[in-house]
Design a protein around this nucleic acid. Structure first.
Lengths: 256, 256
DNA sequence: ATGTCTTTGTGAACGCGTGCACAAAGATGG
DNA sequence: CCATCTTTGTGCACGCGTTCACAAAGACAT
């Protein structure tokens, strides 16, 4: 999924593997659903099915948290909801700021999933002076000039970047300088941050390209030998394409 | 990734590892930037820095595609752009439909990154009759009733689901029945699909929760021994919480 | 209390991905 | 033509994550 990842180099964060951490929210969601239906206990097999994973994997994941199950019975739903929430740090309030209130930023501001898990949108920030004061999701947009003050006043440590790619790195640096140590980046750029700052990336375009790859492969398998050698591997004469404009003899494949 | 991933069980798709496929769009983006600046060739070291990865990893990734570099020189930018585009299947046109034109769906419809890589939004679909005909991103929203017809008429094989969680599975099944074989899912649900259908998931809430985990850990390291045992591991008497409503003696930690 | 049955928790094996380190290949200069 | 220098391509080792398979633990019936 979603997601590619630009974050810590697979440091095991206190014994809990990164892959397990990434699945905990999945379990939590499934458990919350069971809790709403007043299901008291659940087996690893049932919960795994609900979360879309292997039951052995689920049990191993939970084993990193402790022995919270009862053999022969399963897991107590409410208790497990609490334990996972605590482990993820969702028992406390996390104020976040969203920078870049375009279409995507507005969608994020309105997204219920943020507020429903202890995340509170503390401020919406945009560089466009025309946006300042306009209400989005029942909240006035504030100008970028206020960024540092907002972060410090609210004790924000998580920032969401939904700006155009060109502005992302600069916004990122200001966020980090003001005290933000975790960033969720929607801009299609590689952010460089100092050590100690976590960056997670959500890149819609990349996800689609990965799907296209598999889609093409599926289509190619059906009409197997349809494509001959698409281009000779050494089609270009060595040292010929040097110092030539971007519109050389190589097929222009990138639209706009 | 971004993200978690619900897709093929790590099947190596014709020799190219899944992890490599996920990085190809990253390289492509960096290369496109170089191409626009008319840079003729680039070394693995430079390109790796631009893409935010290790240079050895980049070279190994490219080695799966073939020997496209020149030792002592580097890679021809234009040629590599073409090769990666072809490998990802971006040399052809991919019509996509977006189902669920709420805040997020509208943001996606307006998102330039879709159109800029060979992906063409063929239709916007929503279940709300009041939305039908309304223009979003310069395109009239169509009603769900038309879904099957739209898919078949346009030869759509990639669908984007941006509906509420409750509607996602049903929409998914209709998409698949109509011929869609790749799905990008923004709804916070686990989709179950038949074999042969790829699903990639983008879950904003999960990404935030992962960040919160690391954030909490950072905070916990500073004030190391601040937190004592938060709850006795066997706090509940065995077999006591059975058959009790969701509001038992376990702390209610999930807001709303 | 004893036996049976269910389900957890985990040891161990396997496979994938990553990164090191270096040989091979080609460019470049004399 | 030979030497040197740069950069690729890759063999290899290591570590993480996944999965299998089973012993241990507890529930439950008799």
């Amino acid at each position: 999924m979603a997601t590619g990842r630009t974050h810590r180099p697979a440091t095991r964060s206190r014994g809990i593997p990164e892959a397990t951490v990434a699945r905990l929210p999945l379990y939590l969601r499934a458990l919350t659903g069971l809790s709403e239906r007043s299901v008291p206990t659940v087996s690893s097999e049932e919960l795994a099915a609900a979360a879309g994973v292997n039951s052995a994997k689920l049990r191993k994941d939970f084993s990193y948290l402790g022995s919270y199950g009862t053999r022969g019975v399963g897991y107590d739903v409410e208790y497990l909801v609490y334990q996972i929430s605590r482990e993820l740090g969702l028992t406390q309030d996390w104020p976040v700021v969203i920078v870049g209130i375009g279409n995507l930023g507005a969608a994020l501001a309105n997204y219920g999933g943020f507020a429903s898990r202890g995340f509170r949108v503390a401020a919406l920030i945009d560089a466009d002076p025309a946006m300042a004061g306009k209400p989005v999701a029942g909240m006035p947009v504030q100008h970028t000039d206020e960024l540092e003050k907002i972060i410090k006043d609210n004790g924000v440590s998580i920032g969401v970047i939904a700006t155009p790619a060109g502005a992302a790195q600069q916004v990122c640096e200001r966020l980090v300088a003001a005290g933000v140590t975790s960033i969720l980046n929607f801009a299609p750029t590689v952010l460089s941050v100092p050590d100690g700052v976590d960056v997670r990336k959500v890149d819609l375009s990349i996800e689609l390209q990965i799907l296209a790859f598999h889609e093409q492969r599926k289509a190619g398998e059906e009409s197997a030998a349809a494509e001959a050698a698409p281009l000779p591997p050494a089609a270009r004469a060595a040292g010929q394409a040097d110092r030539k404009g971007p519109d050389g003899d190589v097929p222009a494949v990138m639209p706009a």
